[in-house]
Design a protein around this nucleic acid. Structure first.
Lengths: 133, 133
DNA sequence: TATAAAAATGATAATTTTTATTATTTTTAT
DNA sequence: ATAAAAATAATAAAAATTATCATTTTTATA
């Protein structure tokens, strides 16, 4: 794991670790701002980028217009609900062996694989599809 | 397939069909502009969005800051080269049966699945890693 | 074919997300 | 304690996409 230097960086990393909501920069900023009035949005963006650059966290890419992040770097997939917009973990990753086969078939070097499912989550299937960002 | 109403829409759709580069709106605009000087970038954006809305095309999501599109709506995956940025087709989709199993396990309604691999393509592995957007 | 209504477009302004800049503050090393 | 290095806050700037609206094109119909 990364050496967390500054106080702010630790706070941001802790916030990312504390949730499974795969937050965006703004979601983290909004969550932390009340207790950290001297936090800047740019600092959140910068640290999230740094986390991804050194492998401390991963980016799920842009989902509904916002880049989403995950402190869980273990191999797993994601589900985006088109009802509420939430991003859920799916405990299944692309089979490593099959990726190796693809590498041979295409003569590319396959490094990462990100699987994103979409659909409706249990809650939204239930009834009231309250939009939530 | 969609009824292509206007001349411009047909031109944009033909351009999207003519390539396997999974172009962005700007790539299509740049390709068409010389022979269609009266084409507007906004029209390209609007039509691509319409194509995705009615299933004529699919969006691959934002890749390196640009939303990329594909006229091939059949189930397959994609490979993004981190050397040149090109997006390649991978002729393999997520097994339908496994998606059904996931649906039962999570009690979500799984509708779509997009798999994006990253790595280095054959050409970039070869030697000169000329950046290409 | 002529023509009126509807739809689509071009040009550009506006919006939105993310990044860059820079003076200041915090942290680290001594 | 203090100087150098690193990180931050505030905000300007950049970049991609969407909205607006007057004009043009297309469609439907007489």
């Amino acid at each position: 794991m990364r050496k967390n230097f500054s106080r702010k960086r630790q706070t941001i990393y802790a916030a990312l670790c504390s949730t499974r909501s795969h937050p965006s920069a703004e979601m983290i900023y909004t969550a932390l701002k009340p207790e950290n009035p001297d936090l800047s949005l740019a600092t959140v963006y910068r640290n999230l980028r740094d986390f991804c650059a050194d492998g401390t966290a991963v980016s799920l890419g842009v989902i509904n217009g916002h880049e989403r992040f995950d402190a869980d770097t273990s191999p797993h997939s994601h589900f985006v609900c088109r009802g509420c917009g939430r991003v859920y973990d799916i405990e299944e990753a692309y089979p490593q062996q099959r990726m190796q086969e693809l590498g041979e078939r295409y003569a590319y070097s396959f490094e990462t694989c990100e699987i994103v499912f979409t659909g409706m989550c249990q809650e939204c299937l239930g009834g009231e599809n309250k939009i939530q960002h």
